[in-house]
Every structure is written in C-alpha cells, then in structure tokens.
C-alpha cells in the first residue's frame, strides 16, 4: 500500500538498487555453500556414495524427472499436504473462534487440547496406520491433526488479545453482536490467526514427510525411504533440497498473502 511516496527519482532508484541487492543476498549464501560442496566433491576425500557431489545430485534429479517419479511424488505429496492442511486449518480456526468466544467450549476443551500439543506428529503415525491403513487416510489424519493444533492455539490466543477498547467502542456505537464479531473481533484477531496458518503450512510439510517415511507407497517421504534401501544418497539429497525449496516458496507465498490481508498490521 503506497503512502504518498515523495522520494525523488534518484533516491527511488537508489532504493530499488538496495532492495534488489537485499533480494539477491540469499543467492550469495547459496553460491558460497555450493562452492564448498563442489570443492569437497572435487577433492575426492569423501566417499561419493556417502556424500554425493552437486553434479551427482543434479543428475539424480534429472533421472527422477525423466522417469516421471518426481512429478508423481510431488503431486502426491502436495495433494496430501494441501488436503490435510485445509482440513486442519479450517477446524483450527473454527474451534479457535469457539474456544476464544464461548466460555463453555473453552472450559470443556482447552485443558485437553493443551495436553495434546506437545505430542510430536511422528508419534501419531503408528496410531494413524492402525486406524486409517497405509493409504491416504493416515496421511490426511497426521497432517490435519498437526496443523489443527497449531492453528487452533494461535486463533484462540488471537481471540483472547482482542483489545477491550475495540469492544467498548463497538458496543457504544450500537453494533449488533454479529456485526461486531465479523467486522471487529475477526480482523482484530486476524494477525494471530495468520501467524498460526503460516506455522501450520510449515508443519504440514514436516508431518507429511514423517507420515510418508513409514507406511506409504508414494510421495517424497516414501521416495526418501526407498532411496535408503538402494543407498542412493544422490537421490536423498535431491529430495531433501526439493523439500527445502518447496517449504521456503510456500512460506513466502503465505506470508505475502497474509501481509495483503492484514495490511494494517505493519507500521
């Protein structure tokens, strides 16, 4: 949102330059690490089968792409993460609004939900497999459960920190409770809800891979596990890097959307 930008053209150009440099800065870091990695590969001091060089990882990536498994696995994993996230985030927001707003629901559920929060997603995988089998159900369950708890927790706290003065202003302006909820309580809690959703996106990937590592027949996590059986460290590295890029890009997208939607939050 541009607030009457009075910067002179030269100053603006300097600004753009420094912004461009700031955006390019991570590339310096990547190039630096890639350089060291290549040097290690060229020196031949480490066993290529244990620690593959960058070019081996690249050719493993091309290989997986050409035989089509990479696209299939990506689609499978993204579908699972997306579905699980959608279920978990929806439930999390709805229940967070309820526990934040309705004392009875809060009394009944909060202590229990807080007890569930420290349980790691991986610990749930065995239960999920018994309940939902080795197919899609168990993946959806693990992902949505993890996302749900985080999104619920943040939504609930966002609701708790709705400033009292907004409620007072709203009520002395004669607003109905419904309008107050939709146009005051929700926007006031929105920054917290979005923080929860952003965390939820990151956790969706983490918990999905945990679920795919044991008891799956497709997906990035499964392919990692399979690569272990054939001692294909080049494939493992490739898959790990893809997971990293995927997580970073989705986080960036979610962050951008959040900034647009809660535009009033930044100073």
């Amino acid at each position: 949102m541009a607030v009457s930008d009075r910067a002179r053209p030269t100053a603006r150009f300097a600004q753009m330059l420094s912004a461009g440099a700031a955006a390019g800065l991570p590339l310096v870091s990547f190039a630096f690490i890639l350089g060291i990695w290549s040097a290690v590969g060229l020196s031949g001091v480490v066993n290529e089968a244990i620690f593959p060089a960058p070019w081996s990882v690249w050719s493993a990536t091309v290989e997986m792409w050409q035989n089509g498994t990479l696209q299939k696995d990506l689609a499978k994993s993204l579908g699972r993460a997306g579905t699980g996230f959608a279920i978990g985030a929806t439930l999390g927001v709805v229940l967070g609004l309820l526990t934040g707003r309705v004392a009875l629901v809060r009394t009944l559920l909060n202590p229990f939900l807080n007890l569930l929060r420290p349980i790691p997603a991986i610990a749930l995988v065995p239960v999920a497999i018994v309940w939902f089998g080795i197919g899609e159900g168990s993946k959806y369950f693990v992902v949505s459960y993890t996302v749900f708890l985080t999104v619920w927790f943040n939504t609930h706290h966002g609701m708790e920190y709705v400033p009292d003065i907004y409620m007072r202003a709203s009520r002395s302006l004669g607003a109905s409770r419904l309008r107050e909820f939709v146009t005051v309580v929700l926007p006031a809690a929105a920054p917290h809800i979005f923080a929860g959703i952003r965390l939820g996106v990151a956790l969706a990937f983490l918990s999905l891979v945990a679920a795919e590592l044991s008891g799956a027949s497709s997906g990035i996590g499964f392919r990692l596990q399979e690569a272990r059986q054939y001692v294909r460290t080049d494939r493992m590295f490739s898959l790990l890097i893809i997971l990293g890029i995927l997580g970073a890009v989705t986080d960036l997208i979610v962050h951008r959307i959040g900034k647009k939607l809660v535009h009033w939050e930044q100073g």
Partner: peptide, 30 residues
C-alpha cells in the same frame, strides 16, 4: 453500552482495518 451514550477514548479506538469513512459508517449500520 448503547449508542445513546457515545464514548471518545484517549487512544481514539479507531478500527485500523477500516478507512476513516468506514469507521464512521460502522456506527451508522444500525
């Protein structure tokens, strides 16, 4: 609270997600 008794706060209590106009409209909706 009711709209018969208006309140002006030291901290303004404007809704930051609304424009000045929408802040005024908020009270008029009723």
């Amino acid at each position: 609270p009711s709209s018969d008794v208006g309140v002006i706060f030291q901290q303004y209590a404007l809704f930051p997600w609304f424009t000045a106009l929408s802040n005024v409209r908020y009270g008029l909706k009723q």
